[in-house]
């Protein structure tokens, strides 16, 4: 049996009330050690107030080849943005 520890993806929530953000990955034998290692590797300078770790093998990602099929359809739907609708200057609070 290989003793190589599984890979974990690390997510940190910074102090500013933001969402957890992916910061990198590390190896650890289990979730508890992954959190402890993440604390040492990714929060030496107060970068966070909360850590999530997820086994890399459990992350399912979209394929780079599907990029166009997945994301291009949004390109021609500019009306989804409020700036698409010009408002008269006289109209306030909208």
């Amino acid at each position: 049996m290989s003793s190589e520890w599984p890979l974990w993806e690390v997510f940190i929530r910074s102090q500013h009330g933001l969402a957890h953000k992916h910061v990198g990955s590390l190896h650890a034998p289990d979730a508890g050690m992954a959190v402890r290692n993440a604390r040492d590797v990714y929060t030496r300078r107060n970068e966070g107030v909360s850590i999530w770790v997820v086994r890399s093998a459990d992350v399912h990602a979209s394929a780079p080849g599907d990029r166009e099929a997945l994301f291009d359809p949004a390109n021609d739907k500019v009306y989804r943005h409020p700036t698409f609708f010009p408002m008269p200057d006289e109209v306030k609070h909208i």
């Binding site: 290989s2 190589e4 990198g24 990955s25 590390l26 190896h27 040492d40 590797v41 990714y42 030496r44």
Partner: peptide, 26 residues
């Protein structure tokens, strides 16, 4: 000590970046 810990951290960030290319840590 803080500096040497940083060097360890830098090594770990980089090993992980290399691993995304398909080479194992071992």
């Amino acid at each position: 000590m803080a500096k040497v810990q940083d060097e360890a951290g830098h090594g770990l960030y980089l090993y992980c970046a290399a691993e995304t290319l398909g080479v194992s840590r071992e």
